[in-house]
Amino acid sequence: MEPTRQSGRNRRSFVATGIAAGSAALAGCLSGSDSSETEIGSYTVSMAPMGEVEFDGVPEDAFVAFPQYADMAVALGHGDAVTTLFAPDMSGPTMDAFYERLEGVSFEWAGLQNPLENGLSEEQLYALDSDVHFLDPSYVVTTDDDWTASDIADIAETIGPWIGSFHSGVHSDPAPAYADSYEYYTLWELFETVAAVFRERDRYEALADLYAETRARIESNLPPESDRPTVARVTLGDGVFYAYHLNTPGFWQADTRPLGARDALADVEWPGDWGEVSYETMLEADPDVILHLWGITPRYAIEDVRQRLETDAAGSELTAVKNERVLASGMRYQGPIMNLFQLEMTAKQLYPERFGEWPGYEIGESYPEIPEDEQLFDRGEVAEIVTDGA
């Protein structure tokens, strides 16, 4: 007899082929029909490190932590399934800034609870009673000593499965319990898996095709490597810069790696997912351009960042500051829609002579208007895929 949820509803079935140490499987492997229509009947989705999970129907309630999965749900026409969101007052307005340029596309984020605000608890997950948890089990046990792989399996069995790959962000090491079964996925491979969960293969393929065309068009128009600027991707902290690489593997770099700029901090190493870089190190690297991560979120006003650098004795000596090339960059937690906009934004910021001038971004405003003949992807096509299906 199958276990049931505490609410008494039938759970979304879970096939335990390796939540702790099972074999890895191909992302987005879906048995049965690939139709974009909601259908009754069980189907399976495979992804490391979870293994193969079985659903008895399309999820109606989706636990989401990081916003890339909310963006994926919106892109697949299932944004109303999202019931939680990391830092909604930051993530929500940032997503809105992009969606306002897509007719008919929106996301109701106001009122969603931040599931990580006070630490993730089993009691919280039972109360939410979600059909699927879009969060990497390895992330949970790595960041919270109260969780074990056994606890993760219990939640999957009694409430709903886990789908996620946090460590694919920068190819960091997973928790020991999952190390033997872990695999790394690109942003668009993760999106393919989420599409399999929602049975929205047609929407995924249409957006993936549009992305491939957009990326190919950008890459074919890049200047020679010798003519590309040196770039530092950082967030300004208190006396330090929190630094990220541009061209290393991982979906956190999905909006910078395709552009092939020269990473000013390529030779600087750090042990974690990001590093702390001093003003002295930044002066030694002296990038042509500074991309300020999180610059399009409500947390940072790019004008304030520029002012802080201009009034600092060391910061004012940076070439990027002198040449007014300190620019608001995107979020590392980007889904497919966000990735399209952030790829366009970064292309214009780094190569205005190739892709048109970046008009700038003002905190609290929408993604800026781009003349139609200077847009790097078709907004109408994206909106039609999201709202009407492929």
Rank of each mutant, 00 (worst) to 15 (best):
V15W: 03
E213I: 09
D129I: 13
T17G: 09
V194P: 08
T297L: 08
E269A: 14
F86I: 05
T83H: 08
E310P: 00
E192I: 05
L210W: 09
G41A: 14
Y126F: 14
E60D: 11
L318M: 08
T311Y: 06
F86R: 00
L265I: 14
T319P: 08
Y69A: 11
Y185P: 06
D263R: 14
D173Q: 13
D255A: 15
F166S: 04
R325E: 09
E284K: 13
E365Q: 14
R262A: 15
D61K: 10
P137C: 05
A21V: 03
E117G: 11
E100W: 14
G356A: 07
G237V: 07
S138C: 07
Y204P: 02
A254E: 01
D56R: 06
E108M: 09
E39G: 04
P223M: 05
T158L: 12
F14Y: 13
K322E: 12
T387L: 12
V321W: 01
G380H: 02
A264W: 09
W162I: 02
G51W: 10
G260L: 12
D80E: 15
G239M: 12
E357S: 03
S366V: 11
V74H: 00
V234S: 01
D56G: 15
G92Y: 01
W188M: 03
D388T: 13
F134R: 06
R215N: 06
L350E: 01
F191A: 02
Q349N: 10
C29G: 07
V74E: 00
L102W: 07
T148M: 07
S91M: 08
T4N: 09
V321S: 02
A266M: 14
E369I: 06
I152W: 08
P258C: 13
V321T: 05
A87V: 03
A179V: 01
V58W: 06
P336Y: 04
P137S: 08
Y211G: 03
S366M: 02
V58S: 04
E213T: 15
A254T: 03
W188C: 02
R306H: 00
D388Q: 15
Y279T: 02
P49T: 05
T193Q: 10
S42I: 00
Y182L: 08
Y126N: 07
A48P: 07
F98A: 10
G77M: 14
